[in-house]
Write a protein that binds this DNA or RNA. Structure first.
Ligand SMILES: [Mn+2]
Ligand SMILES: [Mn+2]
Ligand SMILES: [Zn+2]
Ligand SMILES: [Zn+2]
Lengths: 137, 137
DNA sequence: ATTCTACTTGCAAATAAATTGCAAGTAGAA
DNA sequence: TTCTACTTGCAATTTATTTGCAAGTAGAAT
């Protein structure tokens, strides 16, 4: 359980109501959320503030952005959870977490083979498929 | 070298000037392109047509969508190239391909552990880091 | 070659996503 | 309590993507 105020202060953020609220919304979520969903989860935080806060949290390493080939980005807390990724149903959009992404060797090999890259900081990995329900239809 | 007309016919597409043009643009590219870039590469194809064509090509398995945490999607031809992914410089946006994504075991394990997924159809994997140039700054 | 029609396209318009500018508000240091 | 750099909301933009529709055409059927 992360103490929100501490998490914010530790990264040099002022502790404000919108930030605490957004953090709380993300912490309760069990799947990555869109900007709109995060906004809905708060009481009256402006959309722009959600954008700015999520971007700041992302820069600070508090949050990760998840792209699932929708028209918009999703975000989820990084803290607390270990490196994990998602299986997504291409039909009904259901999302499940999965772990076991052993990307270090892949990243190191990619870096070695690469012509002009110096370091790898993060990675994204998502699986797209069909859930049991949608697969039968 | 893919024969464009055949590639289109084989998938049930009519062979039209915009489609051939878009296909050619993608074929010349050495990195995934945005809708705007594809449009610029053609002579007068409408933006909407680019959207619709890329989506159709994607559905047909001719093209893959690449999300690099920008505000928009990128697209590249699938045909001809083997399964590959990208290293992206978070600073200057440079993109390099890399191969060696051995995702089958990861996907199979994720599927086995999963509660409600039946099959995996595709995957995305991107590495984010710094190129040699940007790393020194 | 001509006809026919379902598939395509461009254009306008709408909707959605993300960014920017700025004045008013405030957390936290002093 | 004061002060100020950091935050926020609101309006306005910009950029991304989708939708509706009438006009155009590729390719199948004469
Ligand atoms: Mn997750
Ligand atoms: Mn590529
Ligand atoms: Zn499903
Ligand atoms: Zn760079």
């Amino acid at each position: 359980m992360i103490v929100i105020a501490d998490a914010l202060k530790k990264r040099g953020f002022r502790v404000t109501a919108p930030r605490v609220s957004i953090f709380n919304v993300l912490q309760k979520a069990s799947y990555p959320m869109s900007v709109q969903e995060v906004k809905m989860g708060t009481k009256g935080v402006d959309t722009v503030t959600v954008y700015r806060t999520l971007e700041a949290f992302k820069q600070a390493g508090l949050v990760v952005q998840v792209d699932l080939q929708r028209g918009h980005a999703l975000y989820e807390l990084k803290e607390g959870k270990s490196d994990h990724h998602h299986i997504v149903c291409m039909s009904c959009k259901k999302i499940e977490d999965f772990t076991g992404c052993d990307y270090q060797p892949i990243a190191q090999q990619a870096l070695k083979k690469s012509k002009g890259f110096a370091k790898i900081i993060s990675h994204s990995l998502e699986l797209f498929g069909l859930c049991a329900l949608c697969a039968t239809k």
